[in-house]
């Protein structure tokens, strides 16, 4: 066997090993989710009777109506959607305006104010839990959406401001100068000239803000116990207590909780990936 052929067959072996490795890892990441979908359609008899791993023999769609109706999952889903959207909307406005002032405008306290915001990134949310609980209790915010809207928004600010301040800083000064000659005031300059240019970055910030509000657990379970305002994460926790021994409805609730985000991710996977990388790298 010549040298070249040897290395070629060696290459083929390496490639085979790599492919097997990738497929195995992909299966390990995906199979639990497929399994989830399977058992969300199964009856207890089927799960406890031996068919644990495979697809259901009888597709029990009632699990879904059970979870949605008696398990309140519909309500939790609705709460999660609107809470996350409000958080994204408010965060976007606050980040777009304050980052503009912190990056393009000229004032003395710019640097210290910027660093105050950035310091927020190093603070673990746990340390704010009890004080916020006590404030919210005295303001009668506990068990109202305000109790989660507020911390979600505030904790989204530091990373958002940091990323967007950097994004504004890369824009050339000539843009503003020519607008200045045309007689723009500062609000027009912000809204008509600069804001449109950072929209893609802002979209990425909106995406990871949405995901972190959607998935948040600690604030939601501490501040909200009224089923009327529970979000999906807390709702699923109580669902698993309610259907402790019944796998089907819990599975159905989990599928409903996961479905929308997963669908958005699969449709916009590139954008979602970029958004999360941006949140990490700059943060």
């Amino acid at each position: 066997m010549s040298e070249k052929m040897k290395s070629r067959s060696g290459n083929r072996l390496v490639r085979l090993i790599i492919t097997v490795f990738l497929v195995l890892w992909a299966a390990l990441q995906i199979y639990p989710l497929i399994w989830l979908v399977f058992f969300s359609f199964k009856s207890n008899e089927e799960i406890f009777g031996g068919n644990i791993a495979g697809p259901p023999l009888v597709w029990k769609v009632e699990n879904y109506s059970n979870a949605l109706m008696s398990g309140n999952v519909f309500r939790y889903l609705f709460n999660s959607i609107w809470v996350s959207l409000v958080v994204v909307a408010v965060t976007t406005v606050l980040v777009a305006t304050s980052a503009y002032a912190l990056s393009r405008m000229r004032w003395k306290l710019k640097k210290p104010v910027y660093w105050i915001f950035i310091s927020g990134m190093t603070i673990p949310v746990h340390a704010t839990l009890l004080p916020l609980f006590l404030i919210f209790r005295s303001l009668h915010f506990v068990n109202t959406p305000m109790a989660i809207l507020l911390p979600y928004t505030v904790f989204a600010l530091p990373t958002g401001i940091m990323i967007l301040t950097n994004a504004y800083a890369t824009l050339p000064i000539e843009m503003e100068e020519s607008a200045c000659i045309d007689g723009c005031n500062v609000y027009q300059m912000f809204w008509k000239i600069m804001f449109p240019l950072v929209k893609p970055t802002l979209a990425a910030i909106a995406m990871f803000t949405f995901l972190s509000s959607w998935n948040e657990l600690m604030f939601a379970m501490t501040f909200i116990s009224d089923p009327k305002w529970k979000t999906l994460t807390v709702g699923l926790q109580s669902l698993s207590g309610m259907f402790y021994t019944e796998w089907g409805p819990i599975g159905a609730g989990m599928v409903v909780a996961t479905g929308p985000v997963l669908l958005i991710y699969l449709l916009l996977s590139k954008q979602v990936q970029n958004a999360l990388v941006m949140g990490a790298v700059k943060g």
Binding site: A101, I116, F117, V154, C180, N185, F190
Partner: peptide, 23 residues
Amino acid sequence: ILGNKTAIAIFTVPALVLFGGTI
């Protein structure tokens, strides 16, 4: 234009108050 104090306040104070008041 870029040193407009009112604009700076409108742009930063809401975020700063929320941030300082909570975190």
